[in-house]
Amino acid sequence: MNLVRRLVGNAPPRILWSLGALLALLLIAPALLGKYWLSVLILILYFAYVGQAWNILMGFAGQLSLGHALYAGLGGYIAAGLYFHYGIGPWAGLFAAVAVAATAGAIVGYLGFRFSLAGVYFALLTIAFSEFTRVAFDHWAWAGGSGGLFLKVDATRDIVNLRGGPVLFYYVILALAVGAFILCRALLESRLGRYWLAIREDAEAAQAVGVPVLRCKMIAIVISAALTALAGVWNAFYYNNLFPETAFAMGRSIEITLAPIIGGLGTLFGPVVGAVVLTGLGEAFTDLSDALRISGIKQIFYGLALLVIVVYRPAGVWPWLADKLGLKERQP
């Protein structure tokens, strides 16, 4: 009860009611939506979830990672490899996946933070680790090398091995997204969350008043990497294939950062709103470019949209939207 009170805290009742209604709607969505709209909703939830995970490190603790594909890729590869080679199901495999990704996060974090790399330098370190791992996986036979790792496509529902149709994957990613949202709220309300914000705003000042800066940053990157690994596991079993060229690509890392930056960095609703905006734009532009038949035109529209958003709403869409709706999310 205490925990619930802390989570709900001083949120206005109408936000809670809207969230409850939204959740109810999402729970019955597969019965209401066709195949296409369900797949769009799955994409939105995926980006909202993985954005939430990235937001812990960047939005809360202020450390810019442009290499989160490392954790998603490791998670996906470990779980898929265990299933592929030894028949170990993903529910067991995810523990190994999370452990490996969290360790990788701890290594990147320890090296980066211990040597006080900040801002762009830390971001470049994360890119370097991700790229390094990409080339390593290209040459690692257990993981299928550059030829990729394929899981047998099987549409009969088998929850134990996470095999089945889109509806199964919808509920899994919904559970993850909701769980991550609640976890982030709890983190923000905790002492650790306050420490993170202090570090984000001014690490030296935080250190001076006794915040354990290194330990807090380490916790942030480990939690963020672990959550991202779960997204990787889900992704691997949803798409049934993994290639180093895409799993660890810089493009994958960038994709992860977009929803929270567009939505509003460091806010709880930012990654969610950003995921809706980006996926919506992506789908709309796909239809438009199918009609125009010029290669690359979809990405040109996408780039223009990003440009417009970053120039006119540099702090993200959500803070502006919240203001319009008359909701002021306490700026943490």
Binding site: L64, I254, I261, G296, I300, G303, V310
Partner: peptide
Amino acid sequence: PEHQQFLLLLAIAILLVNACLA
């Protein structure tokens, strides 16, 4: 902040490379 600069240049990068592609 750096992430805003990053997003701006990323958008420019997407535009440039896809203009080449088109």
